[in-house]
């Protein structure tokens, strides 16, 4: 059975809270806090949707998004950015790199669920 969603964020509290809420909606969820390591684990987990932070140690979300999209099996995977950065240039950049949507924290959980349901 494949995983519905992978959350990638360096903030553990945010990861756990978001995972619990998404699980309450019936999704299967895995969390990853290390962006560099996530490049190795994503092919193993093989999620249907990725939710990705931007400001993370080791590798920022823009570089990670580009690297994910360069993996053959993830060329078309829906990636939703969920970041505290509220700047329109960052949103434009993420969408140009292949993200489906750019949501900013704090985000209403209904809006996040609604975006996920477009892809699952």
């Amino acid at each position: 059975m494949s995983t519905d969603i992978v959350l990638i964020d360096d903030n553990e509290i945010h990861l756990q809270t978001t995972r619990r809420i998404l699980q309450n909606y019936g999704f299967s969820v895995e969390t990853l806090s290390d962006p560099v390591q996530s490049l190795e684990l994503l092919p193993v987990i093989n999620p249907r949707v990725i939710i990705l932070d931007i400001m993370m140690p080791g590798m920022d979300g823009f570089h990670l998004l580009k690297s994910i999209k360069e993996l053959p099996q993830f060329t078309d995977i829906p990636v939703i950015i969920l970041s505290g950065k509220q700047f329109s240039p960052d949103k434009r950049k993420a969408l140009a790199l292949g993200a489906k949507e750019y949501l900013t924290k704090p985000v209403n959980s209904r809006d996040l669920i609604s975006e996920i349901k477009k892809h699952i």
Partner: peptide, 14 residues
């Protein structure tokens, strides 16, 4: 950062 809401059932933030 906008920390007007932090990790509740309704709003997801940090």
């Amino acid at each position: 950062f906008d920390t007007s809401a932090v990790a509740s059932e309704e709003m997801l933030g940090e």
